[in-house]
Design a protein around this nucleic acid. Structure first.
Length: 111
DNA sequence: CGGTTGACGTCTT
DNA sequence: CAAGACGCCAACC
């Protein structure tokens, strides 16, 4: 595959990765970007999520920032809703209100 | 074609 | 410890 096509597939890969996130696990934007070979492209990953196709089974709530926090409220309704969803899936939340990335960070060990 | 924005990340005040 | 500033780079107007 040509490097140029990687960019073209950037969003597709982001969606694909997000769709592959196992239940009870979370991934950071920077992590996804790094997996795509663009550690500096964390913002674009977020942008991809912002433009996430509605109606799809894309578990965008499992994608959070490096601190283990979620979006301010750009998602389904409010960050509390996303947090609740994650808790239902088994995500461990620290007293800080952040997800415990140390325990719940998902990695591509499958490939 | 150029300025603004942004679901980020990290450093500095 | 919380908030702000800067950097990065593509998408959008």
């Amino acid at each position: 595959m040509d490097p140029a096509e990687i960019k073209n597939d950037f969003y597709a890969r982001v969606y694909d990765i997000v769709a592959l996130i196992p239940r009870g696990k979370v991934v950071t934007y920077g992590q996804i970007a790094a997996l795509l070979g663009a550690p500096q492209a964390a913002r674009r990953v977020g942008y991809a999520m912002y433009n996430a196709p509605a109606g799809s089974n894309l578990p965008c709530h499992r994608v959070i920032n490096a601190r283990g926090e979620m979006a301010p409220g750009t998602i389904f309704g409010s960050p509390a809703a996303q947090r609740k969803l994650l808790e239902q899936e088994g995500i461990i939340f620290k007293p800080d209100g952040c997800a415990d990335l140390v325990k719940c960070r998902w990695m591509f060990d499958s490939e």
